[in-house]
Design a protein around this nucleic acid. Sequence first.
DNA 1: TCTTAGCACTCCCCTAAATAGAGTGCTAGT
DNA 2: ACTAGCACTCTATTTAGGGGAGTGCTAAGA
Lengths: 358, 358
Amino acid sequence: MLLDDRSKYVLKAIVLSYIKTAIPVGSQSITRSFDMGVSPATVRNIMADLEAQGFLIQPHTSAGRIPTEKGYRFYVDNLLQEAELRKDQEDILAQADQLIQRETIQALLQDTSRLLSDASQYLAIVTAPKFSSTRIKQVEFVRLRKNSVMAVCISQDGFIQNKFFEVPEDLSQKDLNKISDTLNSLYSGLTLQEIRQKLLRQIQKMKDLYDHLLEEALELTRRTFIEGGAGGGDAELYMDGASHMIDLPDFADFRVMKGLLSAFEEKRAIVQLLDKYIGTEGVQVYIGSENSFLGDHHCSLVVSHYKRGDQILGTLGILGPTRMEYSKIIPLVDSTAKKVSRLLEESSREEGSPLGEN
Amino acid sequence: MLLDDRSKYVLKAIVLSYIKTAIPVGSQSITRSFDMGVSPATVRNIMADLEAQGFLIQPHTSAGRIPTEKGYRFYVDNLLQEAELRKDQEDILAQADQLIQRETIQALLQDTSRLLSDASQYLAIVTAPKFSSTRIKQVEFVRLRKNSVMAVCISQDGFIQNKFFEVPEDLSQKDLNKISDTLNSLYSGLTLQEIRQKLLRQIQKMKDLYDHLLEEALELTRRTFIEGGAGGGDAELYMDGASHMIDLPDFADFRVMKGLLSAFEEKRAIVQLLDKYIGTEGVQVYIGSENSFLGDHHCSLVVSHYKRGDQILGTLGILGPTRMEYSKIIPLVDSTAKKVSRLLEESSREEGSPLGEN
DNA sequence: TCTTAGCACTCCCCTAAATAGAGTGCTAGT
DNA sequence: ACTAGCACTCTATTTAGGGGAGTGCTAAGA
């Protein structure tokens, strides 16, 4: 399994060439383009070795070689040098730096997916924070009609979500304002988990002190934060750049393209895909059938996370063909994730104490 | 230009056959499938006439005929009989009836686009009401952070939109609640136009009676309803079913498909397309190059509007290849539009007086 | 022992030619 | 006015045949 330097060089040459052209790479074309001081015959021997070890395959006898997924994996893990990743670094940083502060995190994430797809010419995917993992900054209740109330939940990161309830009693907007007040003073700055715990204790106390509005408040709180509830849908997803994929030779087969498009419309599969890898630090690369979804569609995925402080909020990444420009995409995803995190950091610093001043 | 019955019959046969198979239609296949008691030679003569009049073309000599856009137009305008449109009526009504009441109009419209694309197997497009044309039911202001306020605007139709402002003074949530109150009592139930007029008069009065909060209220109102403002974007658009288009032979050409996909991502072109025809009553059919966007992409568009009372709120429709199943799609769009309108009607009846009871 | 030149071989891809088939337009007959 | 027949046109599909890129193997050279 250990490769000598020359084998590595050849593997890398093949991967690079194939990423660029999508044409199987022959021994001669390597010696021509990379000038490594050996003859094509020697390269052929090396290639035969690499094939035996599973890094390359031939589409058919008497064709050049193309990398296997194992080949790409080795390339990504061992052959992508720091130097290589840093080559267009300024360029990529400049791209990522175009992101600017927006009113809501949703708008920022939309910008992000647009930027990622423009810069990569692949498909960009960005997930919004799970509502359940953000810190609540503020909740306002709005009376929609008799017995019907909407909760506007604002997280510290500027994530805004609406939830809808039917309520047994007809609460006036004034009542609701009071409830909002109480609630904000009690729960602002907490995560869902913390709220849940606190709520349990609160309900205990409530049995003693009977206050009608407080009761309502607690009930609404429970439904806002604990019930899965309608509205919003916990997994918002931003995608952009599907049209880039269509003229990649990798997706020349209609069925593949169709499958991909359907998956994009379904979205759920994509969310699952991303959820699977949440929690791992830094940029991750998943190649082809390392994941069944990716394998089915001849795709690879480069993802990272954006966070606030230590807390991972969401995922962003790029989905492209296995034959993807990893050396560009990896730093792009990395710097974009960092930039998004930084923007969130800044916006939370602006807003002062988590409790606000009301 | 006037066609005798037999010519019409032949034209219709050709349109129907071509819609079904996408294969140019020959004289023999017509006599075989439609059994009209004349020989292929006779049909050939008729076809030659129809071609001379511009209803048909031949892709090449010695191929069958396919309808021109003029041919489709004639078919839609004159050959689609009531009877034909009613054939699968129950079926289609049943489809449309699946739509149910949702918390917000946005959710309903999302359902609608999904239903339309599922039922049609083409691409469904639905526009949200223009915020500027809806009647405001209620506005709540929420303090985001120092000098930063969000307005949650709820229209009578359940259309919810957030807007964001920077404000010069640091208003507390309590102030904002008061402002919301004032504002709701003044402007609830009015359209943007009406609010604008009223606002002008109000500002006149204000010069006399100096009330600090009222002044703030008016300023916020102005910015909420009059400035174009950030956030939301006035033209929300729901699309679904792009993946259905990919295996239609009409879009076998990659460039066409790519163009279409890009247009979907851009969205703006689509909004313009729909805006152009807003205001016309009932179901409208636009075929190919009757509109430049459609022509460029070999598409046709079947649209209708949903409304509340007499007021047109938004557009819904189906975009498909020129070779589209008009006889199914037209009643589908029609009944869906009516169903959406009915749902909105019902939901507004539920909610009592436009001013609410707070 | 590793490398290289040479060579026969394989298999794809492109082009050209041949064939089949569907459909037409025209003409002449009913 | 309709129809049968027929020659003709054009496409799509098959078939055959180089051309070429690339391989694997072998044997000779460093």
